[in-house]
Write a protein that binds this DNA or RNA. Structure first.
Lengths: 237, 237
DNA sequence: CGGCTACTTGAGTATTCTCAAATTGTGTGG
DNA sequence: CCACACAATTTGAGAATACTCAAGTAGCCG
């Protein structure tokens, strides 16, 4: 959308442990088998809602989105944030309708990959099959890794881990890893980390007091990444 | 493949949200492309450990196993329990080594499905490709569903959900859904539910006092499933 | 500029944890 | 088959973390 996205494009594929999902697939080759279309999104707009017919996967090109898990009894939780290069919709494969809500946190653009054509393309491009499967596996690992964090860390370390995760992802995309803007509200962060927004707010203030970060509304500056990694004694076990 | 599986097969596809993974694949057809071998396990034995070379997926035929996520700084958490029909190893696809530990909770048997052959078989059996992909997606949904539970429910409802989940799975396998034996320790349950074992123990006692269940060490009898579903007021939002 | 939403901060509460001890079960060797 | 050692489970009491409720501040949109 501006100079920033140009930076990201120029940076090219970095090699870290975080979801680069289908990043290495030759998009041009893919286009020969799958009709890829662009879709613009406004801030707050739903990419899809739970229950809507599942017919495509998406790749985030620009912007940041959140995925929200819903339960029949009204509970809900943010289960992740997706940025450039991330795959969206994998959780709904095999279902009639999408399994969760996906909402744009800012204006952006995604590429729509119709699913049945993707499956057939996998038969013609073995590489694509392996990659799609790996992408799903990567998503499982990503979720498990956060399950571990939420299950074993206290509030302070959860927030610290969240910031470090964002930093790493921004870094991989060619942005600054120590200075970035949060695209999501405190409430979204809290929901994702299984905390209350007041707690997130307090923790951010505390981390700032300790000189580990600078917070100014949604602007974050990481001053001491190692300090963040250590953070609090945590509720080990 | 005994009377139990016959029962399970007779039950047909129950429409619950739980993994039946590769259950519908024609195993005989699969054998023509993939050398499936049996592997017996003793209680406490590791099926694999994090870091060991990844070379196969597994299908549980008999017994119950737990999967454990590990972090570099020594934290660990049980991320799931696998029983007959469940797929194991999907999280490690795309990696050199396995991503987690898997431990048998009792004597049992798994089928080993070498992975590279599985991938090639997918090219020859499109049905298998779709099913493997669906299985991974199902696993993502399963994890997300528990993330939601752990993130939004109090201790009491977590334990209740856990029991109801087990009951449903046993039911689908043709066993009694209201009377079963826990294969895992309180500590394993606690780890999975992000609680302490003392808390699990207390909650079980409380649920029994309310007449919702009967607990006798690892033997569980569900007296009032609906009551369990309601349980406590929960920490909604 | 007004109204709204997002965020921050404080005070008291509540749930879950920690530490500790007692109890029950299990497996093994005698 | 019994006794003992060890592991798993239960239960209690006090502590700690995160929550709830509440008030106040600060950006943002129209």
């Amino acid at each position: 959308m501006n100079t920033v996205s140009a930076q990201a494009a120029a940076a090219g594929p970095a090699a870290l442990h975080e979801p680069r999902y289908l990043g290495d697939v030759d998009i041009e080759q893919l286009r020969q088998h799958v009709p890829v279309t662009r879709r613009r999104l406004e801030a707050g707009q739903h990419l899809y809602r739970a229950g809507q017919p599942f017919n495509a996967l998406f790749l985030v090109n620009v912007g940041c989105l959140k995925t929200c898990e819903l339960s029949d009894d009204g509970r809900e939780q943010v289960t992740g944030f997706r940025m450039r290069g991330d795959l969206i919709g994998a959780e709904s494969i095999g279902l009639r309708g999408y399994a969760c809500d996906v909402v744009a946190l800012e204006a952006g653009e995604v590429w729509e990959l119709p699913y049945p054509p993707m499956l057939s393309a996998c038969l013609r491009i073995p590489e694509l099959q392996a990659r799609l499967t790996s992408a799903l596996a990567e998503e499982i690992r990503h979720d498990r890794s956060w399950m571990l964090a939420l299950g074993t860390l206290g509030a302070e370390r959860r927030v610290a881990s969240f910031l470090l995760d964002l930093a790493a992802r921004y870094g991989r995309l060619g942005f600054s890893a120590c200075h970035f803007i949060l695209r999501m509200s405190r409430a979204d962060i809290a929901s994702f980390l299984a905390l209350k927004h007041e707690t997130v707010s307090r923790v951010l203030s505390r981390l700032q007091e300790r000189g580990l970060i600078l917070v100014e509304r949604r602007e974050i500056r990481i001053l001491d990444a190692d300090g963040l990694r250590e953070a609090e004694p945590a509720t080990l076990h």
